[in-house]
């Protein structure tokens, strides 16, 4: 039981990050129908920038968080302005390829600045780990879970309570109608990149003290986050949360009880199984999703 709890908590921790990445995918997908395969790089950027501000610039903790979020948002904005906007094509394949190319650029920059070694920094709060049912839980774990929950609530509030958020939702339902009622669709697309960069970076900043961060972690994180988004039904915010947590827990259980090398296969097997048997995700309405499935 102790071991099980231990695995459960570590699964929830990584699962939260997958959920955040999955939500990032959804935000951009809803606004543009693009699968942004640079989503994993946002997470890496969050972790490494946080290290840079904390350890290299000795900026106080909250300022470092603020600066990391700001920089990540700026990177999302630059990415959209320089690549997605000028492209102006309906060819989703080319757009998705561009996001891959951009992710390579980001990796190149990260490698140039930070090199190939893994980075870490102190947990957000000092203190002894908690012991729950015999399982030892790092305090940072609660930070990760808490921050994820805060992000989820924040996004929910943003999309349901603010004008910009509502406008973005309108664009995802019907861009033509949205532009007819005067919503600037292209600005909403820009917001979607900023928002999803920020969400990814927050996840990266929170997880780095636990699992380290290096320049080339992006692609695997993107694949996992994408599995989470698909599992929940592409484009559904809440689906990605359940998807991410499920994948995290299953991964951690597989690594613990079966074989650590198979950890990464879990998400993929789930992914294929869902695609083949339930393309709308575990909770989706199949016909609706097929219609949307381009």
């Amino acid at each position: 039981m102790t071991v099980f709890l231990q695995f459960l908590f570590s699964g929830l921790t990584v699962g939260s990050v997958y959920a955040l990445i999955g939500m990032g995918f959804n935000i951009i997908y809803n606004a543009t129908s693009i699968i942004n395969l640079a989503q994993g790089e946002f997470v890496v950027i969050g972790g490494l920038l946080m290290w840079f501000f904390l350890e290299s610039c000795n900026v106080p903790f909250f300022a470092a968080i603020g600066l990391s979020i700001l920089s990540a948002g700026l990177i999302g904005l630059i990415m959209e302005r320089l690549t997605i906007r000028p492209l102006r094509t309906n060819d989703l394949l080319v757009m998705t390829m561009v996001t891959i190319a951009v992710s390579i650029v980001m990796r190149g920059l990260l490698m140039f600045k930070f090199g190939k070694e893994p980075y870490s920094y102190a947990a957000f709060t000092e203190g002894d780990p908690l012991v729950i049912g015999g399982a030892v839980i790092q305090l940072q774990t609660f930070w990760v879970l808490g921050i994820t929950a805060a992000c989820i609530l924040g996004l929910y509030a943003f999309f349901n309570l603010t004008m910009v958020g509502k406008a973005m939702r309108a664009c995802s339902f019907d861009p033509t109608a949205a532009s007819l009622v005067g919503i600037p669709v292209s600005r909403m697309i820009m917001f979607s990149f900023i928002l999803s960069a920020v969400v990814g970076a927050v996840g990266g900043a929170a997880i780095t003290p636990i699992s380290l961060m290096e320049y080339d972690k992006g692609p695997m994180l993107a694949v996992k986050g994408f599995c989470a988004a698909i599992m929940g039904g592409l484009g559904r915010g809440r689906g990605a949360i359940v998807g991410g947590l499920t994948i995290g827990i299953l991964e951690s259980m597989t690594a613990g009880y079966l074989h650590s090398g198979l950890k990464d296969a879990v998400a993929l097997v789930i992914l294929l199984a869902i695609l083949f048997f339930r393309p709308a995700g575990m909770f989706g309405n199949t016909t609706m999703q097929r219609l949307k499935g381009h």
């Binding site: 699968i35 989703l92 992914l271 695609l275 499935g293 381009h294």
Partner: peptide
Amino acid sequence: LKGHYLAVA
């Protein structure tokens, strides 16, 4: 599957 879904599979 089509488009993105096929690519992901």
